[in-house]
Amino acid sequence: MSDLAREVLDVVLDALDIPYAATAGDDEIRAKILDQRLMQLVVSLRALRDDPSRGAAWTLTYLREKLAEYPATGYRTWGEARTECREAGR
């Protein structure tokens, strides 16, 4: 696999692989974050495919900057909830 292909896969995973939410209320927040990240990803993938004049490195850097604007925070994750239950002895 080329370095560019690996970098593209890494940024796709960074965009989409965010922690699952603990509750339905948390999932609403997660869904909004994921929706924004997905939109940025689609725009960037189209640019990579259709407008190579900017270059892959620039496009991937720009995408990472845009993804940073929508961090996977502000909701309780499934992992956090499980840890809390274990610590509480449940």
Rank of each mutant, 00 (worst) to 15 (best):
M39K: 14
R64Y: 06
L9V: 10
L60F: 11
D35G: 08
D3C: 13
Y62F: 05
S44C: 00
E28V: 09
R30L: 02
R49K: 13
G79K: 06
L63F: 09
A47P: 06
A24T: 00
D17C: 14
D27R: 02
R6I: 01
D50H: 02
A68V: 03
S53E: 12
L41F: 00
L60K: 05
L45M: 05
T61K: 15
L48F: 03
L38K: 11
G74Q: 07
A21N: 04
G79D: 15
D17N: 15
Y20W: 12
G79P: 10
T77C: 04
K32E: 02
A31L: 05
R30C: 04
A81R: 05
A57P: 00
R82E: 13
S2M: 08
D10V: 07
A21V: 06
L4Y: 12
C85K: 15
R86T: 14
E69G: 04
A31H: 13
R90Y: 13
G55R: 08
R37P: 14
E87D: 15
G25M: 06
D27L: 08
I18H: 07
L13I: 10
Y62K: 01
V8I: 15
D51R: 15
R30Y: 00
E7D: 09
A47E: 12
M39W: 10
L13Y: 14
E84S: 05
T73L: 13
E84M: 05
I29Q: 07
R49V: 02
L9K: 14
R86S: 12
D14G: 01
A57R: 00
K32P: 00
R6K: 15
T77P: 08
I29Y: 05
A57W: 01
A47T: 10
Y62S: 14
D35F: 14
D26K: 01
L63H: 09
V42E: 04
M1N: 04
L60I: 12
T83H: 02
L16Y: 01
R86Q: 13
E87I: 02
E7A: 06
Y20G: 07
R76T: 12
E7I: 01
K32N: 04
T77M: 10
E87A: 12
T83R: 13
